[in-house]
């Protein structure tokens, strides 16, 4: 029992991070109908910016405090992501209004390459470290409830909490603020939104900013875990099965899809692994996504096209 719960919790915590990456896809797809292939490159770019600024800023300013340096580096990397959002809207999206989905997809593919290129040029292409003081040692909890207690990885726990907090903040932003409502309106019917005076350019800039922040947080978390290197841009691939499972248009879908995949990976590795050989963790998500593509292509929570005449 204790072991099962440990695995389950480990899966939930890993899943929360998948949710975060998936959310990046969903936000942009909802607001602009663009499947953003550059999401992975944005994660890498943001993590690179964070890693480099956190070593540059203390040098430039002669700072002692690592915490302050990290905060400043985070803000600077955030500003860089806003700049990216602005450039993407100005130089790419603005010129592609009303184009086919495939055209837009190709455009984001281009953005991905450009970001990876510029990221390498600006920030170098070594392997960097992000050290935001994540606790590394595991802890025991609930020792008096279970025999031997539960062993929890503190780093995963902190990461999952941050991801959950960000997701909650985004949900509030979307449901409760004027801008969030305008974003949902654009997602529903961008022509009607335009007709009542909502400027699409501004909305697109805002969603790309939000997606940039999501990428930054994901980049910092994954980067501090795995180191900042080129392969970080493939982390976003983990988000793909999640959006297929949860539905490309659903924010709750991204969250629950991420959790299901996180838990599924861990449980199948532990309980099915011995039967059919290990390594399930690597392909489990994709298999699950494949099944969903066959049986329920709009995903668990994908918005039905509400159609009534």
């Amino acid at each position: 029992m204790g072991f099962f719960l440990e695995t389950l919790i480990g899966g939930l915590m890993a899943g929360m991070l998948y949710s975060l990456v998936a959310l990046g896809f969903v936000l942009i797809f909802k607001a602009s109908g663009v499947f953003n292939f550059a999401q992975g490159a944005m994660v890498l770019f943001a993590a690179l910016a964070m890693a480099r600024f956190s070593t540059w800023i203390p040098q430039w300013l002669g700072l002692e405090s690592a915490a302050l340096a990290n905060v400043l580096a985070f803000l600077a990397a955030g500003a860089v992501m806003f700049l990216v959002a602005w450039l993407v809207e100005r130089l790419v999206l603005r010129h592609l209004v009303n184009q086919e989905g495939a055209t837009l997809l190709m455009a984001t593919l281009g953005i991905a390459y450009i970001l990876e290129g510029i990221g390498g040029t600006l920030f170098g292409s070594d392997i960097y470290k992000i050290d935001v003081g994540m606790p590394k040692e595991p802890v025991m909890i609930l020792e008096h409830v279970f025999d031997g207690g539960l062993l929890i990885n503190k780093e995963d726990f902190v990461a999952a909490s941050i991801a959950a907090l960000l997701v909650a903040l985004l949900a509030l932003f979307f449901q409760k603020t004027t801008t969030g409502r305008a974003l949902r309106a654009v997602a529903d019917d961008h022509q009607a939104a335009q007709s009542i005076g909502i400027p699409l350019h501004r909305i697109w800039f805002i969603v790309w900013c939000v997606a940039g922040v999501v990428a930054l947080v994901a980049g910092v978390i994954w980067g501090s875990k795995l180191g900042v290197q080129f392969s970080l841009s493939t982390v976003a691939l983990r988000g793909l099965p999640v959006v297929i499972l949860g539905g490309l248009t659903s924010i709750p879908g991204a969250i629950i899809g991420g959790l299901i995949i996180g838990v599924g990976e861990k449980l199948s590795e532990v309980y099915l692994g011995p039967l059919i050989g290990g390594g399930i963790e690597i392909w489990f998500a994709y298999q699950l996504a494949l099944v969903f593509l066959l049986l329920r292509p709009q995903g668990l929570f994908g918005e039905k096209i509400i159609d009534r005449v």
């Binding site: 004027t178 409502r181 305008a182 949902r184 309106a185 997602a187 529903d188 019917d189 022509q191 009607a192 939104a193 007709s195 009542i196 005076g197 909502i198 918005e303 509400i306």
Partner: peptide, 22 residues
């Protein structure tokens, strides 16, 4: 617009409030 074009997933009141965006 012709064909009404309400924001289908928003409530009626939210639809009205988006009209005040500007």
């Amino acid at each position: 617009m012709e064909g009404r074009h309400c924001f289908g997933h928003l409530s009626i009141e939210e639809n009205l409030l988006t009209g005040a965006y500007t």
